[in-house]
Design a protein around this nucleic acid. Sequence first.
DNA 1: GCCTAACCGGACCTGCGGGTCCGCTTACTG
DNA 2: CAGTAAGCGGACCCGCAGGTCCGGTTAGGC
Lengths: 193, 193
Amino acid sequence: MSSELPPEEPPAAGRPDRRADARRNQERVFTAAVEVFAERGLEATVPEIAARAGVGKATVYRSYPAKADLAEAVARHRLAWLAERMAAAARQPDAFTALRDLLCDVSEQLSKDRLLVEVLPRARRWEEENDISGLTEKLIAAAQRQGTLRPDATAQDIRVLVGGYSRVLIALDVRDPAQWRRYATLSLNALRP
Amino acid sequence: MSSELPPEEPPAAGRPDRRADARRNQERVFTAAVEVFAERGLEATVPEIAARAGVGKATVYRSYPAKADLAEAVARHRLAWLAERMAAAARQPDAFTALRDLLCDVSEQLSKDRLLVEVLPRARRWEEENDISGLTEKLIAAAQRQGTLRPDATAQDIRVLVGGYSRVLIALDVRDPAQWRRYATLSLNALRP
DNA sequence: GCCTAACCGGACCTGCGGGTCCGCTTACTG
DNA sequence: CAGTAAGCGGACCCGCAGGTCCGGTTAGGC
C-alpha cells in the first residue's frame, strides 16, 4: 500500500569531473558494496567488494579513501530509503496502522540488509539531519492519543525492539519474511497499554 | 527471592594430575577469560586474556588448545548458572510471575555478560543436554493455560526478543539494569494475548 | 593519430590475532 | 638436596585485512 521498496537505481554519486571509465568503476564498486554490505554487514571486506565489482582494490580506495567512507556512503543510501518510508508513514491518517505497516516494511528491508541492521541504532547524525526523532515521536504521540500505545513508549523502545529481533534473526540466518513480520507485530504488541 | 546470581567460585576445572603452579595458572586464565569475554564477547583476544591473567599467551594455549575451547569452557560455566535459574523458575507456582522474574534476572546477567548474549541463541547443544526447551515450554504452556500468554507464543519467541534487546543495549553500551528490566517486561508484554 | 594526464591493478607494507617452539626455570620425587 | 620432567613465556610463524605505490595502460582533447 505504499513505497517502492528499494530505490530502483543505486546511484554511485560519482563526481562528474572524472574520466568516464573512473565513474563507471565507481558505480560498479558502489553497487557491489551495497550487495556485499547487505550480506555481511560491517564484516564485509574491501578485497571482497573489489572482487565482486571486478576491479582491483586500489580502485576502491581511489573513490573512497577508507573502508569507513564506503560503508558510510552505502549506509546513507539505504537510510535515505528509510527516511522516505517514515515520512510516508507520518502522512497516513491512522497512526497505529501506519506504525504497523511501517514496521513490517522496515522489517522486510532489514531482513535483506545486514548493514542496515547494524547501523540503524547508531545513526545519530542521520537521525538529526532528517529529524527522525521528530517523525517517530509524532507517530507515537498520535498512537498514544488514540490509546493504542502505552503512554511511556518511546522512539528508543522501537529502535531497541526492532533492532533487537533483527540482529537475532540475522544471527540465526532466518530469511522467511513472514517471521520478520511476525516479530514486527509482536514488538508493536509489546508497546500496547 | 531466588538464586545467588553468579556462582560464587568460578572453578577452573583444572585437571588435578598437573603441577600445582600449572593448575593455579589455569585458574587465573579461566577467571581472566570470564571477565574479558563478559566485557568484549567473542571479540575478546587471547593476548588480552593472557595479559589480564598475568601469564604469557602460550600458557593459555597449554590449558586450552584453541581460543574456541576456552570460550566454550567459559560459556558452559555461565550457561550452567542459567540452567539452574530456569529450573528454579519452573518450580514456582505462578507461571507468569515465574517468567517475569526469570526474564528480569536473566536480563541483569546479560547486561553484564556480552559472551552470554552472543552465545545464547546458538547454544543448541547445551539446550538439548539440559532439556531447556522442555523447561521453557512447560513454563509457556502453564502461562498459556492461565491466559497470560498468547497461544502462539513459543520458546523461540522469548529467545529472539530477549536476545534481541540485549544485543542492542550492549551495542549502545546501556548499563543501567533498570533499562534492561524494562525491556524484559516489554518483551513479555509482547507475548500477551 | 598523438600526447599526456588520469587511471588501473598487481605487488608491497604494516599491524594484529591465532597458534607454535625452544631454551630457561621451577615444582615435586627420592 | 640433587635430578628431572613439567611448566613457563618471549620470540617466532602464518594468514589476512586495511591501505599505499608505481610501472604500464587508456581516455579523450587537440
